[in-house]
Write a protein that binds this DNA or RNA. Sequence first.
DNA 1: ATGGTTGTTACACAA
Length: 268
Amino acid sequence: MKLRVATWNINSVRIRTDQVKRFAEEVQPDVICLQEIKCQDGEFPADSFLEMGFKHMRVKGQKGWHGVATVSRLPIEDAPLLDLCREKHARVVSAKVAGVEIHNFYIPAGGDIPDRTVNPKFDHKLDYYERLTKAMAARDRKDPILLSGDFNIAPGEFDVWNHRHMLKVVSHTPIEIETAEKLRASLDFTDLVRAAVPDPLKLFSWWSYRAQDFRASNRGLRLDHLWASPGLLPAANKDGKVSAFVHDTAREWDKPSDHAPVVVDLDV
DNA sequence: ATGGTTGTTACACAA
């Protein structure tokens, strides 16, 4: 069975419900992992998602900030829960769809100063990664696990508009790159989008609102990821090819999110 | 080198 999974930092699900609808019509995902829904559970526009055909949903919201939700056309079963946030923010929601464990993350951005001894937000970001790395290292490689969401790290040289410049900027500092690699190595995850669009092609999923013309300046970062465990990899890898892409035209829409959706096709 | 924008909130903050 084909399963198309998308992840999208929507930056307020309430003001962009229509954009999710447009995306669902254009791309026809079976599952959408949303981040930064910026609402409480009871404020999530569940009726709109039901109308779109997403009859199954798991919402983890909070007032004002953060918040994640996974919506699905197929039934959702319980998945192992992850309790990783020392600040008790709503930053992860887990679901099992068609046998695939889908963990949907909004990992802390980390503030401006890339030094955990002076910046508690940066410390929180690294702490979140360290806890997640520990949790994944305890898992069985054969389990079909998809890590999905806004990781707030651009891990590769070609995941940023300027590698040399960005090494000093939170999201692409050496300690963050190292921290993301430790998570990847914990269960030998595969970065599915990079498998589909190999280096040295530059690929971004986020562009700042501050650019007048994001296409012209193209100062983007690839912060949004879909990582497969070894047990899930055969479902994503058909004859040595992975089908995954960034739906970057969504960044051109009126009043867009600063993130574009990222999509992968699985055969489960 | 600096500032540029957005969403939620309540009279800043986080990103």
